[in-house]
């Protein structure tokens, strides 16, 4: 199939950037979206153009490196699917596709579709861990964890840190990202001792990094390729309230 692409091109952080039109020809439905862009790039290189810069690594939906806003939706039209796992059979011959970077004040564009997501790392640095030293940990079965809690913790821990939640949020908030980590650790007995401190530090850092506040639009949940639930945000809020009054 043949497609018309409008791709965000921006030389560097200082550049204002614009959408540029490209034709993608002879696209196979078995290609992934990124392989389609690879193809466009190969042609750009051999015809003397500059290839479109975009991030990716694992290309199987787990590392969280990829991420583009495809036709107005982070990671594109298919639910629970990262850009690298989106296949071209989700499009039709003759389609026009708009491709933009994830946009947020906290995600400055580095080039084209490549953004700097260090702000998410800094939210984790503020407390998204359990402070345990290496060695001397008690036996893995010393503290039993109800299956239900372990499962919920895992539901939350599946976050891949891609930033689609931020990109989708009308407020550019990182609440879903933050809530996923808070819930993951708060659900486990090992994470309880620091739970209150953690939620305060992480939400404070979120604001410092330039993310917006949560207005409960739930766009994040709809965009998340890993199905992280907005109810984890409610959990974060509860943890925050508990932390204030204990």
């Amino acid at each position: 199939m043949n497609l018309t692409l409008y791709v965000w091109r921006q030389k560097d952080a200082a550049d204002t950037g614009q959408l540029v039109r490209y034709q993608a020809k002879n696209i196979s439905p078995d290609m992934s979206f990124l392989e389609m862009l690879d193809g466009v790039n190969q042609e750009l290189i051999t015809t003397g153009g500059e290839p479109i810069a975009f991030d990716s690594d694992c290309r199987e939906g787990i590392c969280g490196a990829c991420g583009q806003v495809v036709n107005g939706v982070p990671h594109g039209p298919r639910k629970l699917t990262t850009t690298c796992q989106l296949h071209m059979r989700n499009f039709r011959d003759g389609d026009t596709i708009y491709i933009e970077p994830f946009r947020s004040r906290a995600f400055p564009v580095i080039k084209d579709l490549v953004i700097d997501r260090g702000s998410l790392d800094r939210i984790i640095q503020a407390g998204g861990y359990i402070s345990v030293h290496t060695g001397g940990a008690p036996d893995g079965n010393a503290i039993l964890i109800p299956k239900q809690d372990a499962e919920t913790a895992m539901d939350a821990a599946e976050c891949i840190g891609c930033g689609a939640c931020v990109a989708a949020c009308p407020n550019g908030s990182a609440m879903l990202f933050t809530a996923a980590k808070v819930t993951h650790l708060a659900k486990l007995p090992q994470g309880r001792p620091e739970a209150g401190r953690r939620v305060c530090m992480m939400t404070e850092e979120m604001l410092k990094q330039g993310f917006g506040n949560c207005s409960n639009h739930y766009e994040c949940e709809a965009a998340c390729p890993k199905g992280i639930k907005a109810r984890f945000i409610a959990k974060l809020n509860r943890e925050f309230v508990t932390a204030q009054f204990t």
Partner: peptide, 22 residues
């Protein structure tokens, strides 16, 4: 064996059975 203990202490949500054991 120490790796598992370390990971559990860090909050790695390994699969567990209904009694709460790994």
């Amino acid at each position: 064996a120490n790796i598992i203990d370390q990971a559990v202490a860090q909050g790695v949500p390994f699969a567990r059975d209904y009694a709460g054991y790994l």
